[in-house]
């Protein structure tokens, strides 16, 4: 049959452990199916030529019944082909369905303009990086329409649905860069095409350490802003003076506020650190003590970064940020609820 010899090159070079669960049945089925089709079509062609009407008045042989032996063999072969398709595909199916325990979790968010891959440390990348030999489990959702995640080299194809979680997993066996894209049409302008980079385990750890270090290539304040976005602060604190569950971060550094227990606090480095690590000890009046303590979640350097960033949001932050906080804040700015 066409391409029988080249068939092995149709599949992209296998680069994952479960590829074999797809490639095995594919090659087996291909050989069997090619022979089946070649046999049936060949027989039809042979009969048409062999039993050509030689004499205009000729009639075909009288009606016959199916030959029990040939019919039985023929049907058995077809049933065998179907059973093979089922049985050969079954191990791969189980493998695809059940991710191994302890697989490295990566979150995937698909949108019309691309993928976001979120690593356990919180780092978000637009390409997927994995380590060779370590199973990776993808937990995926879509923010708009149905997309897909497909890495042909890994034999991974999974639809990503809005409002649902889809999972897929694979274990890379080769360190290389592979095509990763959506195989499901997401409308005009959908651009879900990126790369899967598989590293040797040591290189992967090095890569993750490098990209996860939020201080490389960022000023202290920029790192603080990134933490604000990533650590969930923005759910309750705005930066434009609007009041949410907690006070806005606009114009807080260097200002004084009354607390729930009637004291007055000056927002300085020490108060910020206290408010992050043990936020419900000294709460600004008018707010409930409901914030999650970040003790053990953020280190000194991160808090320093957040402080530096809060200074940039405050009219009293000062350009020379290491300067002593000005004492005696403006009493007019006291309630922390002013708009704008």
């Amino acid at each position: 049959m066409i391409g029988l010899a080249f068939m092995a090159t149709w599949l992209p070079a296998a680069a994952s452990r479960q590829a074999e669960g797809v490639d095995g049945p594919f090659q087996g089925l291909y050989v069997a199916a090619a022979f089946a089709v070649a046999f049936a079509a060949g027989l039809a062609l042979a009969y048409v030529m062999l039993f050509r009407r030689r004499d205009e008045s000729a009639r075909g042989a009288p009606a016959g019944r199916p030959h029990p032996l040939y019919l039985g063999l023929w049907t058995l072969l077809a049933a065998g082909l179907a059973v093979y398709a089922l049985v050969a595909g079954f191990p791969g199916f189980l493998d695809q369905t059940v991710p191994p325990y302890g697989a490295y979790p990566v979150g995937v968010t698909a949108r019309n303009d691309g993928f976001d891959f979120t690593y356990p440390g919180g780092h978000v990348a637009d390409t997927l990086h994995v380590a060779v030999g370590k199973p990776v489990q993808l937990t995926m959702t879509s923010e708009d329409v149905i997309h897909g995640l497909s890495v042909p080299a890994m034999r991974v194809h999974q639809a990503i649905l809005p409002g649902r979680q889809a999972t897929a997993w694979f274990e890379a066996t080769l360190a290389d860069t592979f095509d990763l894209r959506s195989n499901i049409h997401g409308g005009e302008g959908a651009a879900l095409r990126t790369a899967l980079v598989s590293h040797q385990p040591a290189d992967f750890d090095e890569w993750l350490r490098r990209v996860s270090d939020i201080f490389t290539g960022r000023t202290l304040a920029e790192a603080g802003e990134l933490l604000y976005n990533r650590e969930g602060c923005k759910a309750c604190h705005t930066t434009d003076g609007t009041r949410l569950v907690g006070p806005s971060f606009k114009d807080v550094y260097g200002f004084e506020f009354p607390t729930r227990d009637g004291k007055t606090v000056l927002v300085d480095d020490a108060y910020i650190k206290e408010s992050i690590l043990t936020p419900n000890v000294s709460v600004v009046a008018g707010y409930e003590p409901v914030m999650t303590p970040y003790e053990g979640k953020l280190g000194d350097k991160e808090i320093e970064a957040i402080t530096a960033w809060l200074k940039t949001l405050s009219s009293k932050g000062g350009a020379a940020e290491e300067a002593e906080p000005e004492a005696e804040g403006d009493p007019a700015a006291g309630d922390g609820q002013e708009d704008k």
């Binding site: 039809a44 009969y47 075909g60 019919l71 049933a79 179907a82 398709a85 089922l86």
Partner: peptide
């Protein structure tokens, strides 16, 4: 996959009907 069997029976019957016909060119 169960469909493989009826398809095979139909194919058998078609080929058996061609067999020893007086097939017009």
């Amino acid at each position: 996959l169960l469909g493989a069997v009826p398809v095979a029976l139909i194919a058998y019957s078609l080929l058996a009907t061609l067999h020893r016909g007086a097939i017009a060119c």
